[in-house]
Each structure stands twice: as structure tokens, then as C-alpha cells.
Design a protein around this nucleic acid. Structure first.
Length: 972
RNA sequence: GCGCGCGUGGUGAAAUGGCAGACACGCCAGACUUAGGAUCUGGUCCCGUAAGGGGUGGAGGUUCAAGUCCUCUCGUGCGCACCA
């Protein structure tokens, strides 16, 4: 296609200019701004008093620099924050808009292993590619603050924060993290090694031997959060449970705060909900059950203590530690008697069942399948009625939640009912449902029955009375439980932050801050070992060191921790580092942190944290939860000044591949033109047609093969399907993927249409938060719009070069145009604040359409319009700004720091408004009346209208509704 | 199964309870052109020659007035999934 305007010259020109001028530099408190910088001239007054203007922190989720380069999904969110950043800069804010690289992680290492390259090398290469691609899109990043999580100068502080966690315990009385030295030691504890162990058990970063998710294919353990349907999130490999010694972070201590503080941030409700569900708070009670013939007690957690009288058996998770103690006979041998004490067919031994359960993947343990379990031979005593109930083990009870044991109330729990029916266990109704509902299997709230002292109480009251009773008798207590588990924080990987931890005599010690960063050894072979032994074990010199025990001063052979941190570590605090990226003394300077993370202007008094954070929903739970957790620990120490990191969060919607047409036979469809499909042109090969036939649930007959070139006929300019005219065609969009062949490369879009068109299109597609398909024709549409805007000012000469149009003149604005201009100022300003970029662009299109039709074009008006368009299409507008300034004969200043236009409300006042006349709610006519006409007068005019009279057909109006300046509705 | 969101032209979408379909794609017609995958102008929800009527997944409801609010229902997307 012919170029609409010379973007190929304009874009590199201004990118170079911005680079050289350092236009987008954000200034920290205490920094001196060079007089030559446009920021200085814009904020002369403030800088004279050594003050900075109000800040605005617009943050993108920094990318993982993958080998395949930028994807069109990246620029979507980046453009949104860039528009806001440029807008805020013009509004006079000191804008922090940074970018960096989340460069540790599995894919980099896997790629490196496969191609026999060091991950550092491939990472550097990928970062270079990404950065080049981003620069070509004209984002206003302050590149002086670029950070990379794999840079020792950065991960030094990641390790430092880890040590903070390591050297802390959670004081539940003050609900805060405190230094481990302040942990109260039990009086009777005097032995130094006991004390050390006691402390180790309370650290926010601790070592656990619990069963973890081991992924043999990846050669590492994974966090619960990284497992989807029993498979690894990365690669989809099977995962098995096995006990391993791992580092955990005590995120559960913060569960309550992580829920509550969501009330104070401006996030999408859906994301708040996801986090709340993930944390999974539930209120209930713990109940202690005595075991018959033993002095042991089993504690269960229940949200329905009111159903305690209906507990007819108890179930323990297979991994429950008490099993060996309570069922010595049944543990290794089969139980000869069933739970009723009768002889029965032999069942598995407890040990055998445990073994079988451990092998099962999570998927095999899913709901809906037949429940399995074995009787342990032991009985527990129900504290409310002293009934002896059999104790079973079953894998439908999870070891990681609550106490790993439940009281089973089959009458009022779906799973317990299923289990009871399978094993013929008693079912006792204890809740009477509202009328008309089946009582057995009823799980809602009703009235207590067959329940002694709580009979007749509604469920809510019954719960309270039961808990009071339990607490009185010291056999139970009020309890809140969370689904959230502690965060498995170690990985058996090379390409991650090494732990600043040393092991000596089976004890771990944290490094001193002075020893950071701890840099990993340069291995020749950093491939996973295929066993739980991390790759770092291969670096003998690095691993084995002499160490002095800081407590005992004992010197000896020690070993470094061989695990590395997960990829999430670096992204947990990068937004803080951006505020002070080159600070070598601190993870971030406190004055700087306060400036950027807190409100600094009165009108933003509620804004705490990053002002705007835009990214994909894929991080709705993990990254955002982890980062909030770290932030809160830092907050407890006063190292950051806000309880939450991100004030306003927005999720951009996924961009799907271009719509594919799917064809059916037999339904009531018609042959359609295929020009919407870009790949069909004269050069198209049969393979090039992205056209598939597929089966539709409605039963339309399927063509059953991929369409070929023969199926398409050329009619004039268009291609038409040569299929039966009774064919139905359906359009569908899919996620972009290499295998589907529908990935759009931003580079090729920039090449063909320019960066401004790509930016504009991604914003024009629809609401930012919505999922939407790519459409190359749509890019052409906004590209044409930019061309029209360019041609408002420029004219093409015979030789193809451009010159200022003679229609552009130094004249006052036409009043009609002025009104549209001010409407556009208002609409664009409001829409940017609301991130409604699509409608802002629509308004600017309306303006350009109007302006195109005028003969003489006022420079002043055009300049204002160019300012409005600038955040969206920065290159084109800088060029036009320069040209218009020349025409006007004014001093050329960079548009980046030009003040944002304000609209004149007086110009928007209407003198006449169009009133809609309705009869019985139906539009019948319209009339023009002076603005703010009285209701009585409007009514009179409406009734006098001939169309209205006609529609009333002589009836007397029963009622007349008058909405001032809007409509009159006559009910007749 | 549970939770949340979304259903508007051929397509992407607009619409503080007040004229449904702004803006754009596509399509149709015209102008200018050696040419047009450039540009410009006009048209384009459905039925109807028209008057008029119908129309925001479906069925009800509230209201003078519903795409918008309520109830039910169907479809679809996302998330969680034996969490006691």
C-alpha cells in the first residue's frame, strides 16, 4: 500500500531526538534538573524552590524477554500506560514510566540448554531484541532506570530482602513481622541449639520437609500455584508429590491482611475476588475428639460446628501423622473386622492405602469419582454425645488444609454422603431445611434438629451456641482457616537467584548483608541433574566453604544452599527499585520511595502506591499476591511507606488472532466475500488460507476438509467461496499461537503502517480490559485516519514530497470548528482519565472529518488538535507540531512538555437543543427549542406539534413527562 | 459442581434509565484517474413502494420510558475445583 504519510522518516527522527534530549527522564527528589532540559523550563517556578511537581507513577508489568520477541499483546498495555504518562506529563506531573526485564526463569534456561548456550548470553540477546522493538514503538520510558532481575546489582537486593524475611518472625499479637532476635524464647529453653531451632521454626523464610510438587521433566519442584490440573503450568508436564527439604515463605501469616487491605485499593472487583478466593478464608471451629483406648486426641476443623451431633464417623488424610499411633493393629496388616465389629472381606492396610494414595495424581483424586478409604480399626468419641464413631482414612481429605482430619456429617455434606453410602455408614439428619427441600443431602442453612441443646436454633445461632459450649468444656475453639498455603520458594535450577544461605552441621545460617550479592558460579554444565540435586551441586569450589558459626564461633566445613529462588522473586519488588534504580547503598532510598509511592498533591490524597499498574490477568493471583506479601513485610519494618504496592490496577484484555471464517453446509447461510481475510490475495497459496471447516454443535453438516484454493473464486476484486449458497459461515477468533499460525508480529505492522498506527489501532480496537481479535483491516482504518490528520496540514507535491498546505493559515478559528474542538478537548481528556481510549479516538476522528471539510484551517486550532493526539500518536504529532510552529512563526518547543489544552466550558454551552417528542414512549417528532426552556413551555410546544396531535388522534393526554433539554413524552 | 464476567448490525464496537447502532472495518454507488488495494463524496439494522411496523440471546416484571434495573432461562468466556 502507498504510504499515507512519511512515517518511516518521522518515527526514527523523533525517537532519536527523544533519546538525545533524554526527554522522558523522571526526576527524583534531590536531583538537579539541567536547565537545558524541557522539564526545567516547564517547571521553572517549582525548581527554583527546589521542589518537584506532583508525581505520577505509571507502571507496566515488565516482560519476560523470551526468544520469540515482542508480541502484539505487549504493546496493548504498554500503549495504554504510555498515553496516560504522556498525558500526565503534559498536565504538569513528574511522571515515572519505567521498563525492565524479568529475565530469570525456566524458559531461558531450557532454551539455553537446548541450544547449548549460557542463559546469560541468550538473555542478553533477547533483552536487546525486546528493547529495540519497544524503542521502535515510541514509548516514553525513562531508560536510565532500566533494570534486569539477573543483574547482580539488582538481585543483590532481592537476596537482601530474602534475608529480611529469613531474619524475621511474625508476631501475631501485633500482626507484624519483627526481627528474629525479638522472638520470645520459652523460659525452660536454655540450650543454644534448641533456641536456634526454635527460631528457625518461626522465621518467615524457613525450611520444611513437607511433601512438595516435584516435576521430573522440568527437574524442579513447583509451587502449588504453578500447577494446573496436576500438570506443570510451564510445559504441562506431570507432577508428583514427594517429601523434600525445601525453603518456604510464611505468606499464610499475612493471609488476613492480604484480604483486608484489598478494600483500600482501586482494583477490578474480579481480581479482588480471585485473590480472596485463593486465600480462601473460612470461619468455623476446631473440635477435639478423644480416641478410644488411647490418650491421643484428634482435632478437626469444621465450618459447621452446629452439625456436630450428626458426625457419624471421622476421616483422616492418608498423610496424617497420627495414623501409626492410633491404629497399631491395622497399620501394617489388614483389619479383620469392619467398623461395626463384624467379620468382613479384607481391606487394604493403612500403610498400603497411604502408599497407593501417594502415587495418585491430583486428577485421580478428583471429585465425582467413587470415594475410596479404609477403616483404621480405631474409634473416636464425639464430645457432644459421647458416641463412638469409627475413624477412617481417605484421600478425599486433604492433609494440607485445616488439621488434615474431618468429622464427617453425611446428612449435610455431599462428599461425606457419597462416602457414607459407599461404605454403609450411618446418616443422621441434624439440620431441618426450609420447607420443600430434601433433608438428607441438604447443605444449606436451616434449623437444628436431633441436636440436644441446640435443637430449634437456626444454623447461625446454633453455630455460636455450639462453639461457646465447646470452649466452655475445653474441647474446641473458634477458628479461622485459610486455603492459602505457605509459598514453596526454592527451585532446583541454575538460572535464578542463589540463596544467601550457608549450611553447617545440618543448620542453616544467613549471609551478612556485606556478603551480597552472592553470585552463582559460572558453570560449564548447568543442565538439571534430573534428580532433586540442584545443578549448583556441580560447582565444588563454590559450594564448599569454610564458615564460622556466628553463635558458637565454631569454624568448620560448610556448604552453600544449592537451590535457587523462583522466577517470582525478582518481580516481587521491581516496582520499588524503579524509583531508585541505581542506588548502590540501599534497595531504595527512603525519601525517593516516599515521593514516588505516596500522594504528593492534595487532589490525590487517597492515592498510595503505584498510581496505575497495567498488565495481563495471568498475574491476577500469583505475582500480585507475592508482591503484596513482600511489600507488607517491608512495610512492617518501615522500609516502605505504604501498606499496599499498587493503588490502581487495570488488566488489559487478551488480543486474539485474526478472526477465522468457518464454513458449514446445510444451514441458512450464504456465500460471502473473503476480502476480510487478509491472507487471501493473488499470491495466496492453498496453505496460506486460514480457513477451516469444523464441526458445530448445532449439527450443521461439516464440509470436513480444509478449504483449498479451488474452493475460492475471484470475482472482480473479491474472492468468493465457491461452495453451495446454502452454506453457513461462522467467524471465530483464537488465542495467538505458533501452532495455529496466527501470530501477528508487531515489527511487520510497524514496517507497513508505522508505530503510531499500531499504537492507535490497539487502543481503538475496543475497551482496554476486553478480549478482542486482531484485525489488519482495522489497522488500515486508523492508518488512514492518521493520513487524513497529516493531510489537514500537508499537501503532496508532484514529486511525491510533502509541503505545508496553503489552507493552513494564521487566522482565528471558525466558531463552529471551535465548538467541535472544545468538545474534543473535553472528551479526550475525560476518556484518557477513564482509560476509554477507543472513544477518545472516535472523537478525534469526528474532529478530523469535520476539519477536512473546511476550506481554511486555523493554525491555532490545528495545534490544539495535535496536542490532543500527541499521547496516542507521538511521532506524527511532534512532526506536525514542529511544522505548525514554523507556520505560526513561534519558538519550537518539544510537544512532550507542552501544556495539555483546557476546554472553555462557555464554548460548549448550547443555545438551542433538540427535543425528542414521544407519544406513548415512541419517537414521533423532534423540535428545536432554546436551552433551559421551562417545562411548562416545553409541554405547550409539544402538545401544539402537529405530528403529536396526529398520533394522539383526539385523545386527551393522561400524563405528560417533561425532561428538560431532553424530551417530552405524552401518554395518551 | 461453585464463583465471576459477557451476550447489541456482515465485523470491532457506541449509548449519566430518555432518539439504539456514534466512530471504524466491510459492502454498494458516484467523482477524480492510464490505472487504483490511493483519495474524495454519498448510501448501508430488518420488513415495507410508502405510510408505518419490528428490533439489543430468550421469557416475564418494574417504569411515562429498559440495551441499561429486577426475576427466571439459554448460550459463551474466565477462574477455582473433594478446602470440610
Amino acid at each position: 500500500m502507498r504510504r499515507q504519510y512519511p512515517f518511516h522518516e518521522i518515527e526514527p527522527k523523533w525517537q532519536k531526538f527523544w533519546d538525545e534530549q533524554d526527554s522522558f527522564r523522571a526526576w527524583n527528589p534531590g536531583e538537579s534538573v539541567p536547565e537545558s532540559h524541557p522539564f526545567a523550563s516547564r517547571h521553572k517556578d517549582l525548581l527554583n524552590t527546589h521542589n518537584l511537581p506532583p508525581k505520577f507513577y505509571a507502571l507496566d508489568m515488565f516482560p519476560y524477554p523470551s526468544g520469540s520477541g515482542l508480541h502484539v499483546g505487549h504493546p496493548e498495555g504498554y500503549t495504554a500506560t504510555d498515553i496516560v504518562s504522556r498525558y500526565k506529563r503534559m498536565r504538569g506531573f513528574n511522571v515515572l514510566h519505567p521498563m525492565g526485564w524479568d529475565a530469570f526463569g525456566l524458559p531461558a534456561e531450557q532454551f539455553a540448554v537446548k541450544n547449548n548456550l549460557h542463559p546469560r548470553v541468550t538473555t542478553e540477546k533477547n533483552v536487546h531484541t525486546f528493547k529495540g522493538q519497544l524503542k521502535k514503538l515510541g514509548f516514553s520510558y525513562d531508560w536510565s532506570r532500566e533494570i534486569n532481575t539477573t543483574d547482580p546489582a539488582y538481585y543483590k537486593w532481592t537476596q537482601w530482602i530474602f534475608l529480611k524475611l529469613y531474619n524475621s518472625w511474625f508476631d501475631s499479637s501485633s500482626n507484624k513481622a519483627r526481627p528474629i532476635e525479638e522472638l520470645p524464647i520459652p523460659n525452660q529453653m536454655t540450650d543454644a541449639s534448641d533456641i536456634q531451632k526454635f527460631r528457625d521454626d518461626h522465621r518467615l523464610a524457613y525450611v520444611s520437609e513437607a511433601p512438595v510438587n516435584w516435576c521430573p521433566a522440568l527437574g524442579t519442584v513447583l509451587a502449588n500455584e504453578e500447577i494446573i490440573e496436576g500438570k506443570s503450568e510451564v510445559g504441562g508436564h506431570p507432577v508428583e508429590r514427594r517429601p523434600m527439604r525445601q525453603w518456604m515463605l510464611r505468606i499464610t501469616a499475612y493471609a488476613d491482611r492480604l484480604i483486608h487491605d484489598l478494600d483500600h485499593v482501586n482494583w477490578p472487583e474480579g481480581i479482588k475476588m480471585l485473590q480472596k478466593n485463593w486465600i480462601g478464608r473460612s470461619e468455623g471451629a476446631e473440635v477435639d475428639f478423644k480416641i478410644v483406648g488411647s490418650d491421643k486426641i484428634i482435632t478437626v476443623f469444621t465450618t459447621r460446628p452446629d452439625t456436630l451431633f450428626g458426625a457419624t464417623y471421622m476421616v483422616l488424610a492418608p498423610e496424617h501423622g497420627i495414623l501409626r499411633d492410633i491404629s497399631p493393629t491395622a497399620y501394617d496388616a489388614t483389619v479383620p473386622l469392619n467398623w461395626k465389629g463384624q467379620e468382613s472381606t479384607p481391606q487394604l492396610s493403612v500403610a498400603a492405602y497411604q502408599k497407593a494414595a501417594a502415587k495418585k495424581s491430583d486428577q485421580d483424586r478428583q471429585l465425582g469419582k467413587v470415594k475410596s478409604g479404609v477403616f483404621t480399626g480405631a474409634y473416636a468419641v464425639n464430645p457432644v454425645n459421647n458416641a463412638q464413631i469409627p475413624i477412617w482414612i481417605a484421600d478425599y481429605v486433604l492433609s494440607g488444609y485445616g488439621t488434615g482430619a474431618i468429622m464427617a456429617v453425611p446428612a449435610h455434606d455431599e462428599r461425606d454422603l457419597q462416602f457414607a453410602q459407599t461404605f454403609d455408614l450411618p446418616i443422621i439428619q441434624v439440620v431441618e431445611p426450609p420447607a420443600g427441600q430434601e433433608s438428607i443431602g441438604f447443605i444449606g442453612y436451616g434449623t437444628a434438629v436431633n441436636s440436644g441443646f441446640i435443637d430449634g436454633l437456626p444454623t447461625g445461632d446454633a453455630k455460636i451456641k455450639m462453639i461457646d459450649w465447646l470452649e466452655n468444656k475445653s474441647v474446641g475453639r473458634r477458628m479461622i482457616n485459610f486455603k492459602l498455603r505457605d509459598w514453596l520458594f526454592s527451585r532446583q535450577r541454575y538460572w535464578g537467584e542463589p540463596f544467601p544461605i550457608i549450611w553447617m552441621n545440618e543448620r542453616h545460617f544467613g549471609l551478612d548483608d556485606a556478603d551480597l550479592p552472592l553470585i552463582p558460579p559460572d558453570l560449564v554444565d548447568y543442565k538439571p541433574t534430573g534428580t532433586p540435586e540442584p545443578p549448583l551441586s556441580k560447582a565444588g569450589d563454590w559450594v564448599n566453604i569454610k564458615f564460622t558459626n556466628p553463635y558458637t564461633r565454631e569454624v568448620g566445613e560448610a556448604r552453600r544452599e544449592l537451590n535457587t529462588m523462583p522466577q517470582w522473586a525478582g518481580s516481587c519488588w521491581y516496582y520499588l527499585r524503579f524509583t531508585d534504580a541505581s542506588n548502590s547503598k540501599n534497595f531504595v532510598g527512603s525519601e525517593v520511595e516516599r515521593y514516588w509511592m505516596n500522594s504528593s498533591s492534595p487532589d490525590q490524597s487517597k492515592v498510595k502506591g503505584v498510581d496505575l499498574y497495567v498488565g495481563g490477568t495471568e498475574h491476577a493471583v500469583l505475582h500480585l499476591l507475592y508482591a503484596r506479601f513482600w511489600h507488607k513485610v517491608l512495610f512492617d519494618y518501615g522500609l516502605v511507606s505504604t501498606p499496599e504496592p499498587f493503588y490502581r490496577l487495570v488488566n488489559q484484555g487478551l488480543i486474539l488472532g485474526e478472526t477465522e471464517l468457518h464454513v458449514f453446509e446445510g444451514a441458512n447461510g450464504k456465500a460471502i466475500s473473503l476480502t476480510q481475510l487478509r491472507d487471501i490475495d493473488e499470491e495466496a497459496t492453498p496453505e496460506g488460507l486460514r480457513l477451516f471447516a469444523f464441526e458445530k454443535a448445532s449439527g450443521a453438516k461439516v464440509i470436513g476438509r480444509r478449504l483449498a484454493a479451488e474452493d475460492v473464486e475471484k470475482k472482480g476484486e473479491h474472492f468468493v467461496l465457491k461452495v453451495d449458497p446454502s452454506i453457513a459461515v461462522d467467524g471465530r477468533s483464537f488465542k495467538m499461537s505458533k501452532s495455529r499460525g496466527n501470530v501477528i508480529n508487531p515489527d511487520s505492522v510497524v514496517e507497513e503502517f508505522g508505530a503510531d498506527a499500531l499504537r492507535l489501532f490497539e487502543m481503538f480496537m475496543g475497551p482496554l480490559e476486553q478480549v478482542k481479535p486482531w484485525n489488519t483491516k482495522g489497522v488500515e482504518g486508523v492508518y488512514r485516519f492518521l493520513g487524513r490528520a497529516w493531510r489537514l496540514i500537508m499537501e503532496e507535491k508532484q514529486d511525491g514530497s510533502w509541503d505545508v498546505s496553503a489552507k493552513v493559515q494564521n487566522v482565528p478559528a471558525d466558531p463552529r470548528i471551535l465548538k467541535i474542538l472544545h468538545e474534543t478537548i473535553r472528551k479526550v481528556s475525560e476518556d484518557i482519565e477513564n482509560l476509554a481510549f477507543n472513544t477518545a479516538i472516535s472523537q478525534m476522528m469526528i474532529f478530523v472529518n469535520e476539519m477536512t471539510a473546511t476550506e481554511v484551517k486555523s493554525v491555532e486550532v490545528l495545534k490544539t488538535f495535535v496536542q490532543l493526539l500527541n499521547p496516542f500518536a507521538p511521532h506524527l504529532t511532534e512532526e506536525l507540531w514542529e511544522i505548525l510552529n514554523k507556520v505560526e512563526g513561534t519558538h519550537v518547543a518539544v510537544l512532550v512538555y507542552a501544556p495539555w489544552p483546557s476546554y472553555d466550558a462557555a464554548l460548549l454551552v448550547e443555545f438551542e437543543v433538540e427535543i425528542v417528542l414521544q407519544v406513548n414512549g415512541k419517537l414521533r417528532d423532534k423540535m428545536k427549542v432554546p436551552v433551559d426552556l421551562s417545562s411548562a413551555e416545553m409541554e405547550r410546544l409539544a402538545l401544539a406539534n402537529p405530528r403529536v396531535a396526529e398520533m394522539l388522534a383526539g385523545r386527551t393526554p393522561k400524563k405528560v413527562i417533561v425532561v428538560p433539554n431532553k424530551l417530552v413524552n405524552i401518554v395518551g
